[in-house]
């Protein structure tokens, strides 16, 4: 482990007049596989969306790779929840994966043969090459998740931020996704993953953040993922004001 890649300082986020995140202070280790766990409504998605500057915080700062400007986002591959895009959009799987390459193109610039090759390679990694001409509405839940991850790989970023990638998918896909994540970690990438199943945290992740509106505990999984901390996060109904 070599240092910190994301530093969050005193972050507060509110929806209208309801606080969603409260006094978040957090360091995420470079090259880690970090899980974010917590009960429903704990603000897990809110936190990673704030990292991606999709939500504007009330106060606090987020430093990624030593930068706070918008350009740093291009180095982050964001995998949204499956429900967040319109799957009836007329596009093939390859079209969607190619979008990962748009990050490296300026306005008006088109993708080239090289980008196509990278996209096809990413599809191969996710064992989706047979589906490359399939319309996205015809994909199953697991295949959609794999297509999204292929897009992230095609983007060729150093940091991966994923919102419940293992939610509602079959066990084969789950194993495939975890294999790919481990392989990419070995290549130096960092993973921040919102995760739902507590029973697999120890097996899948080396770091964990336990939260419920505020950070309950964070650090190496073995040290932090204890019954005490989990109970604290799941018992309390979040911090009041």
């Amino acid at each position: 482990m070599d240092g910190t890649i994301i530093t969050i300082k005193d972050l507060n986020v509110a929806y209208q007049d309801k606080p969603a995140l409260w006094h978040i202070n957090l360091d995420i280790r470079k090259n880690s596989r970090t899980a974010i766990v917590g009960p429903n409504g704990a603000g897990k998605s809110t936190m990673i969306k704030t990292m991606m500057k999709l939500i504007r915080p009330v106060s606090g700062s987020i430093e990624i790779d030593g930068r706070t400007d918008k350009g740093v986002l291009k180095n982050i591959a964001y995998v949204p929840q499956k429900g967040e895009v319109n799957w009836d959009f007329p596009a093939t799987v390859l079209d969607v994966v190619l979008m990962g390459r748009y990050v490296h193109k300026g306005w008006v610039k088109r993708t080239q043969k090289k980008d196509r090759d990278i996209a096809l390679e990413a599809l191969k990694t996710m064992k989706m090459e047979a589906f490359c001409d399939r319309q996205i509405s015809e994909l199953s839940g697991g295949q959609r998740q794999r297509a999204f991850l292929a897009r992230a790989i095609a983007q060729d970023a150093d940091i991966y931020v994923m919102d419940e990638p293992l939610q509602g998918i079959d066990i084969t896909t789950e194993n495939l996704i975890m294999d790919v994540i481990r392989k990419l970690q070995a290549e130096g990438k960092t993973f921040i993953v919102v995760h739902h199943q507590l029973n697999t945290v120890k097996e899948y992740f080396d770091h964990v953040v336990i939260m419920n509106k505020t950070i309950i505990a964070d650090g190496p999984t073995d040290a932090v993922f204890t019954g005490d901390n989990i109970e604290k996060a799941y018992r309390e109904k979040g911090v009041g004001v």
Partner: peptide, 13 residues
């Protein structure tokens, strides 16, 4: 009314 409430909370963005 909502803005007044928000200000009272101190959470004006």
């Amino acid at each position: 009314r909502r803005n007044i409430y928000k200000r009272r909370m101190g959470g004006v963005s």
